[in-house]
């Protein structure tokens, strides 16, 4: 019993500490996470915003409401494209730029990350085929 209690406690501690929230750019207007707090940011890659400087990439994630600048250092997924859905994970830096260490775009050309699809559908920006 004691063992199970410890395991359960550990699990709920971890759920509290080790999970990350998912936000769209517009959500950040309402509640700005503290710099350094990890979360996932999703939306569409804004057209014409992708700027590659050697290994570093910078682009803007938008929900056609607000736009957040993202910095990333690494290889982008094969299906990373402008005006396509994307999910990034990382934290806000002091200068308000989102520094991502993970960029996800799915391995299927018709894919739209579900969170992004739901949020964009609510806004009426994007429609499923």
């Amino acid at each position: 019993m004691a063992f199970l209690a410890v395991a359960a406690g550990l699990t709920f501690y971890a759920l509290g500490q080790r999970t990350s929230y998912f936000y769209m750019p517009a959500d950040l207007a309402a509640a700005i996470p503290a710099p350094g707090e990890r979360f996932r940011l999703g939306g569409l890659v804004e057209k014409g915003s992708v700027d590659r400087q050697g290994l570093n990439v910078s682009f803007a994630v938008t929900d056609h409401d607000r736009t957040v600048r993202v910095r990333y250092s690494g290889t982008l997924p094969d299906l990373f494209r402008e005006e396509q859905g994307v999910v990034t994970e990382g934290a806000l830096a002091e200068d308000g730029v989102f520094v991502a260490d993970l960029v996800l775009a799915k391995h299927d050309e018709t894919y739209m990350p579900r969170e992004v699809a739901d949020a964009l559908k609510e806004k009426g920006v994007w429609q499923e085929e």
Partner: peptide
């Protein structure tokens, strides 16, 4: 199982979208 289903439960209850990733699983 909890880590896998937790995002579903949270979304159903609070409409917050969260993700449970490697840090959670590695720890527990």
């Amino acid at each position: 199982l909890i880590g896998t289903l937790y995002p579903l439960v949270v979304e159903a209850l609070t409409e917050d979208k969260i993700s449970v990733g490697a840090p959670f699983f590695n720890l527990t």
